[in-house]
Simulated scan of single mutants.
Amino acid sequence: MSNFERSDSQSYVNNPLNSSFHHLRGDFWVKFWGVRGLTPTPNSHTCRYGSNTACVEIYVAGQRFIFDGGTGLRVLGKTWQEQEKPIEAHLFFTNSQSNRIQGFPFFAPAFVTDNCFHVYGTAASNGASIKQSLCNQMLQPHFPYPLQVMQSELLFHNLTPGNTLEIGEVKITTAVINKNQRSIGYRMTWGDYSVAYITDLHKSLDMQDQNQILPLIQDVDLLIANATYTPPTGKNHEYAELLWKTPVSLAQMANVKRLVISQHHPDDDDDFLDNIQNEVKSNFPNVLIACEGMVLHIGNEE
């Protein structure tokens, strides 16, 4: 169905959702296409860790999943253009802020007729659905072309935080991570393996926050979490410990096997992130600072 036709292609996801993908067993991997928070930072001092905003690709059970659609989504889309067969994938948004959705208008596979994308998100702080938020950023004067020019089939699903959905063999659990930003986190489970994606942590968490987050990340093979800072100004490298203290504390409490810290501040250059990598390893040895192009295989020791 072309998106030139106005339709009610939204649904509220509270129950399992079946997928038509053919299941391929054996592979479960995660690739990072965008690791910045707030805004892209292309310059000579960010070339090693990367400059694109949030986008993570996960391939599991023969299915494609994307978490967040920052500018890294454009780069991911270019690689998918090389595939000859039609693409079906599931795109999950943590919130509707610009750094999470700004790559969507440049996602080339969404303009290809035979492709199909399931788009998931929860209501923004102003009550807008994920479909409304994506549509609004593609309206004049913000963007020259409306969402309706995308010729792929776009199926929008409104998530209710706290519920679980099933897509084929994959179970995805949701929870509120940041109630002020209306941000949600995800836990993806396939068989005995699991990955959690929570990227809107506060610098300090009260007991209510912990009670929401800890069940989502308990015993996961991989936790992807954000560095914490006070945006967009007032950053001081003297307090670098604040960047990693919250995700490391959560990883330790939840018995996380491996931690990746992402969503780097625009001012964090490559040398600074190198220092953070060394510093945080003394507190949580199995941790990585996210960089664009990094691929992690779930279930394999690396």
Score class of each variant (00 low, 15 high):
170 V>C: 09
195 V>M: 02
217 I>L: 02
233 T>S: 12
255 N>S: 14
212 Q>K: 14
201 L>C: 01
148 Q>Y: 15
258 R>F: 10
146 P>W: 06
234 G>R: 05
244 W>V: 07
223 L>T: 00
188 M>R: 07
198 I>A: 00
176 V>N: 03
187 R>Q: 13
201 L>S: 00
209 D>Y: 05
175 A>H: 00
248 V>M: 08
154 L>D: 01
156 F>S: 01
203 K>T: 13
144 P>Q: 08
147 L>I: 14
188 M>I: 15
166 E>Q: 14
232 P>C: 07
173 T>F: 07
149 V>C: 10
256 V>P: 06
241 E>H: 11
178 N>H: 00
189 T>D: 13
195 V>H: 02
197 Y>F: 06
194 S>I: 04
211 N>R: 15
235 K>S: 11
214 L>Y: 06
192 D>N: 15
144 P>C: 10
233 T>C: 11
196 A>F: 00
249 S>Q: 11
176 V>Q: 03
189 T>A: 14
247 P>H: 03
159 L>W: 02
181 Q>N: 14
168 G>K: 06
182 R>L: 10
189 T>I: 14
208 Q>Y: 10
154 L>C: 01
179 K>N: 11
176 V>Y: 02
164 T>D: 14
254 A>F: 04
232 P>W: 05
205 L>A: 06
177 I>G: 01
166 E>K: 12
255 N>P: 11
188 M>E: 11
161 P>F: 02
208 Q>M: 09
164 T>F: 09
195 V>Q: 03
200 D>P: 07
229 Y>V: 03
210 Q>S: 12
184 I>K: 03
141 P>Y: 13
218 Q>G: 15
195 V>K: 03
142 H>P: 10
155 L>Q: 09
164 T>Y: 10
243 L>R: 08
243 L>C: 09
146 P>L: 06
246 T>L: 04
144 P>I: 10
229 Y>R: 03
199 T>F: 04
170 V>I: 08
205 L>V: 05
233 T>E: 10
225 A>C: 01
257 K>F: 15
213 I>S: 01
186 Y>D: 04
216 L>G: 01
199 T>H: 07
239 Y>S: 09
210 Q>L: 14
222 L>W: 01
192 D>I: 12
255 N>E: 13
255 N>M: 12
177 I>D: 00
153 E>L: 07
156 F>Q: 01
235 K>G: 10
237 H>N: 12
253 M>Q: 13
158 N>G: 05
170 V>G: 07
171 K>S: 14
198 I>C: 00
222 L>D: 04
158 N>I: 04
180 N>D: 13
167 I>H: 08
225 A>E: 00
145 Y>R: 13
183 S>Q: 02
232 P>K: 08
206 D>E: 07
210 Q>R: 13
226 N>Y: 00
146 P>D: 08
235 K>C: 11
217 I>A: 02
199 T>C: 08
151 Q>W: 06
149 V>I: 09
197 Y>K: 04
234 G>E: 05
